[in-house]
Simulated assay, not measured.
Amino acid sequence: MSGNMVIIHGGGPTAVINASLYGAVEEAKKHPEVGRIYAAIGGTGGLLHKKLLDLREIPQEELDLLLTSPASAIGTSRDHLEPEDYAAMVPVFEEFGIRYVLLNGGNGTMDTCSRIYEQCCAHGISVMGIPKTMDNDIAVTDHSPGFGSAARYMAVSTAEVCADVRGLPIHIVVIEALGRNAGWVTASSALAADCGVGGPDLIYLPERAFDEAAFLRDVQELIDRKGCGVVVASEGLHDADGKPIVEPVFQVGRAVYFGDVSSHLANLITKKLGYKARSEKPGLLGRASIALQSACDREEAVLAGKLAAEAVVRGESGKMVGFRRLEGEPYRIEPMMIEIEQVMLHEKGMPDSFINEAGNGVTQAFLDWCRPLLGGPLPRLISFTGREEVRS
């Protein structure tokens, strides 16, 4: 079946979403049955408004820059779509001769992918999903493109803060990590220890209900033992009733703008324990950093785009590309095709085996699982504190 292709981005971008775009475009070019390779500029809304760009017309030297460009080069969206919007897409596909549809995104986008697939089944249009999320919360697949780079950023940035606190040990620093309901990015901060100047002392994940009294006991013990320290906390922390510990600033459907969790926790330390504390919140820097992009993440993102394009051209539809991790060393994965209904809006949290018994840190099993995704050794840092010779 010959026809044109369209690639659509959805949800929050990552440091490698453009790498998946690159992989899909380069693969599509190899197939003579694929005519134009459209990008929907601005996500699903761009598609509905017929804002399409033929990527075959883009010079190769510009396409090559996709591998090292953050965010979404074609624009993305969090559009709320009604049933009539999905129905309206089919006439657009037919008007532009589109027979192959690729959607690159996370849980919400895979739900959109499923609904578009349902609309397209009777029209000879094939639909495939490409996983993308820094949160790493897409079900079934071992991990998702976007996470490895966010994890590398979090690990290195936390190590830099740890070095700062080690050099001037006068306070507790609370770092807030992105991650709505899953603590994968927060947990990756533990790999800061690989840089050689220590890692975070305490890590709090949304997979465990936050207990303020236990938190303050943990921090007081840290103050008594070291007089300083680094705490990493998820933006999605909630109490035993599921209520966020800081009221969200804004919420519509799945879109949540969380309150300032790191500031709240630093204020708790200062007010309740009478000790100096400060907060740090990398925010979008944690998902947009090309300087700390993971090579492994980039390569797997390209592979995901390539495999999706290849599959849709050979007639597969209603699926998402996923990765299965193979046992043993060195780290290896094998691709798989996952039925789209298995992943749409099914969020994958951290398993119990990756969280320590106290609920304020991670296990060695998590470190071993996560380390290969960071794309190589982290930069080595040095500190001479603790080596001094003390004489009476």
Rank of each mutant, 00 (worst) to 15 (best):
P335E: 10
H31W: 15
G229D: 13
D137H: 07
K319W: 11
S126I: 12
L345I: 06
A358W: 14
A139E: 08
N104H: 07
A255T: 14
L374A: 08
R56C: 03
I98Q: 00
G361Y: 13
H80N: 15
D194C: 11
I338A: 08
Q220P: 11
I333H: 08
F323I: 06
V232C: 03
P248L: 10
I125W: 08
R166V: 14
I245N: 04
V16F: 06
G3A: 10
I41W: 02
N107R: 03
N267P: 06
Y275H: 06
D111V: 00
T112W: 04
C228V: 14
E57N: 09
R166G: 06
G105E: 03
I269P: 08
G167I: 15
V173L: 08
D135Y: 10
S144Y: 09
V343P: 04
E212W: 03
V261A: 00
F384E: 11
S144D: 02
A214D: 12
L103M: 05
L292K: 12
S294V: 00
G253S: 07
N181A: 14
S149L: 10
T186I: 09
V362E: 01
V90A: 01
M336D: 09
A213T: 15
K29F: 12
L273Q: 05
V252A: 15
Q220Y: 14
M110Y: 13
H80I: 00
P131A: 06
R225N: 15
E247Y: 10
A151K: 05
V252P: 12
L345V: 03
G253A: 08
E212K: 04
E316Q: 14
M337C: 10
F366G: 00
T158C: 07
I269E: 11
G42Y: 01
K132G: 01
A15Y: 04
N360V: 03
A209F: 09
S392I: 14
R371C: 14
E339V: 00
G376V: 06
R166Q: 10
H171I: 13
N181V: 12
G42L: 01
A240H: 07
M110K: 05
A187I: 11
R254D: 00
T14Y: 03
W369F: 15
D211P: 13
R391Q: 09
L265R: 11
I138K: 07
V127A: 13
G105A: 08
R166F: 10
T14C: 02
E339H: 06
R391K: 09
A182R: 02
D241H: 04
Y38H: 07
G183N: 05
S20H: 12
R325W: 02
G376I: 02
L303R: 14
D135G: 02
V246H: 06
Y22R: 14
I382P: 03
K50R: 08
L103N: 01
F210E: 00
P83Y: 07
K348D: 00
E95D: 10
N360Q: 11
D239V: 08
N104Y: 04
R152I: 12
S72P: 15
E327D: 07
F96S: 04
G179Y: 00
S149F: 08
S114Y: 04
L103D: 02
A88S: 05
A291W: 13
E84C: 07
E329G: 07
E160T: 12
E62V: 13
R225W: 00
C296I: 09
H9Y: 05
